[in-house]
Design a protein around this nucleic acid. Sequence first.
RNA 1: CGGGGCGUAGCGCAGCCUGGUAGCGCAUCUGUUUUGGGAACAGAGGGUCGCAAGUUCGAAUCUUGCCGCCCCGACCA
Length: 442
Amino acid sequence: MRLSRYFLPLLKETPSDATVASHRYMLRAGMIRQNSAGIYTWLPLGHKVLKKIEQIVREEQNKAGAIEMLMPTIQSAELWKETARYDAYGPEMLRITDRHDREMLYGPTNEDMITDVFRSFVRSYKDLPKMLYHIQWKFRDERRPRFGVMRGREFLMKDTYSFDLTEEDAVKSYNKMFTAYLNTFARLGIKAVPMKADTGPIGGDLSHEFVILAESGESEVFCHRDLVEMAPPGDVDFDGDLSHIFDARTSLYAATEEMHDADEFAKIPTDKQLSARGIEVGHIFYFGDKYSAPMKATVMDSDGKPQTAMMGSYGIGVSRLVGGIIEASHDENGIVWPKSVTPFGAGVMNLKPGHEESDDVSEDIYHKLVAADVDPLLDDEKGSIGVKFSRMDLIGLPFQIAVGPRGLKEGSVEVKDRATGEKQNMTPDEAVALVIAAYTDV
RNA sequence: CGGGGCGUAGCGCAGCCUGGUAGCGCAUCUGUUUUGGGAACAGAGGGUCGCAAGUUCGAAUCUUGCCGCCCCGACCA
């Protein structure tokens, strides 16, 4: 993409109502625009990141054996009345009436709807287990939306639902998602720690939150330090036994504020105790027959007797992750994107458009990176060099290649690693090779 | 939902107390010069001061109501 043709509305000054880094940078980098409290337009740069995160989440779900579908945003109140959640959910649910005065709602979650789908089509234990998911916009009318997309009212969530014949099987599904989440967050370039969590109004008794540690986190969390650096499972057989992966993590102390047990925490060696602020980016639940029982979602077992399906649900806040990743990865000059989710793979800066050699070399680098699928952004705008560098720092692409007359006299361009700040001079071809190599395993 | 604050040009703000022709910086447009880390000069455009009612000869400014937004807390898959 050429900057001169792109739509990148940057803000030079920090909007006064943004108090956390990710919100400030998302506004300044032209990623989002607020439409009303907790509701945002995703501008091209932000949309690109959102879609990249979504795709990684999708790929890891598919690897774990979950099957993608898509349910609507607008739901009928009927299903919600079956589970008695229509009244229980309260004012957080946006209620709507259609022209016939029918009660509708903008879905805050989809347990009721998926259970209805399940009971309509699944009859036999032979069809189990099943894990179904979708990635869809949700709406929760938060009392106080804040922190930009991290606590919006409208947000994009991946929600998976598992159906099993027995609790024992359901725990296997739970472990699949637990494992998939570890891999998902690792691919996104963040360290998310699974923590014992409160099940909240969703109910149930087995639940973990996946939490990124960051100063700006909304809640306090407590865990064993080793959990933070523990390597992801990587390639595993999702049909095999995953309990060791679960056990390796849950045997170490980790809990959110509500579940915190100070006595247990005190048993951790002092140098391994970690209390910090955290951002919840995923939450998984096992809740048994909470919805399947009232909605009569049953299958025939091998004895020909109806058995209520045992369910779990598994959410990842896709739009929240855009903010969460920035909270975990930025500096005083702007965003520092992990390679896996960066909106563009590298920025090529033509420091002097109109200067023939600068034009030629920057175009050549740009085309070679395009051909290698690095998806570069070429800054071909006229303007001061300082603006170019600071703009590139702000939007946080992992590599910056500066092409200008001064370097070209020596036959070199400057490559800057955004994360380390390290700058090196090298030939244009070396720069291209370096960037391409950096993306081969991403 | 309790407490607090804000709404004036695209963005950031001043003016309001003490009513009298709406300002500053950045951005934008034109021109000239400049160019290796947020350039300089000259010129230009852009606002029914959130909305409504009231007080007044006169309201951005005072009063009342409404709307919107933000912060702290409580709440929160």
